[in-house]
Write a protein that binds this DNA or RNA. Structure first.
Lengths: 137, 137
DNA sequence: TTACAAATCGGAATGATTACGATATGATAT
DNA sequence: ATATCATATCGTAATCATTCCGATTTGTAA
């Protein structure tokens, strides 16, 4: 997913493509990893006079529901990143910079065999640590 | 992990074994799944006149740091359960009742090969859905 | 360019968690 | 048993992320 695809999607679904909405998308497009609502607010405040919590959180939810953003909870805070729309995979997440590395291994096929009477709605497989760049820093 | 082992551990480390601490342990011992601070408070209020947030959260942190409790974040809330001290494994977690089922599959050995210059500190593999009992309810 | 639904604003409310000074209480030595 | 004292708890206020709401503004379609 990227900014222009997301804007197409907004238009197709009848949502308005406002300046703020575009700015939020380019923020995540540039981010290349997980970012918090707070980081987004700090960024938007540098280019807009006033920005409401309402605008931030409403659009984060909208984007998440539309599949534009992925969500994970770390340290009591929600973190968002641009959705990976190609093949199914998971992430290594750097605790310092939030950047991610794709992990192509997914054991769900094997796991499903052991959960015959369970209804599976979702799963999460994440690896946490420091990326090479943040280790030397 | 269970209540009596945890109490031993507390004594060995020089922590006091108070009534509240024991009650918290038996709550999780009986719970057989993930529980929130709120659920713990509600339980403790039925057997004690007044219970402070401070006591709840301080002990939850202590138990987590000591390896007595495991922690996961769901829906903006921290959830705790008795640690599984036997072999390494992961969990299916029921969204309704919080009960868990062990998942013995762990793909970390394979994953580590693809993260040669990364320092891995932790990983999470969880499956969410409804357990058989909660599906029929 | 007008009209109107949708989006945003500003700020108050909520819910989980943390912080803190005052008080109470296990554990140890007497 | 009792006194001592560090540790634990209390009660409540503060903090932090997030949600909510009435009033105002702004894309968009006609």
């Amino acid at each position: 997913m990227n900014t222009s695809k997301a804007i197409e999607l907004l238009k197709k679904k009848g949502y308005k493509t406002t300046g703020k909405r575009k700015d939020i998308l380019t923020f995540f497009d540039d981010a290349d990893g997980y970012r918090t609502a707070k980081e987004l607010i700090q960024h938007l405040e540098t280019i807009h006079d006033g920005i409401s919590f309402d605008t931030i959180y409403r659009n984060l939810h909208l984007y998440h529901e539309m599949g534009i953003l992925e969500l994970t909870e770390l340290n009591g805070e929600k973190h968002f990143r641009m959705s990976c729309t190609h093949h199914h995979h998971h992430h290594f997440i750097c605790k310092d910079c939030g950047k991610t590395k794709d992990i192509d291994v997914c054991p769900m096929d094997e796991v499903k065999k052991t959960l015959v009477n369970y209804s599976i709605e979702d799963h999460k497989f994440e690896i946490y640590g420091l990326c090479p760049a943040c280790q030397t820093a």
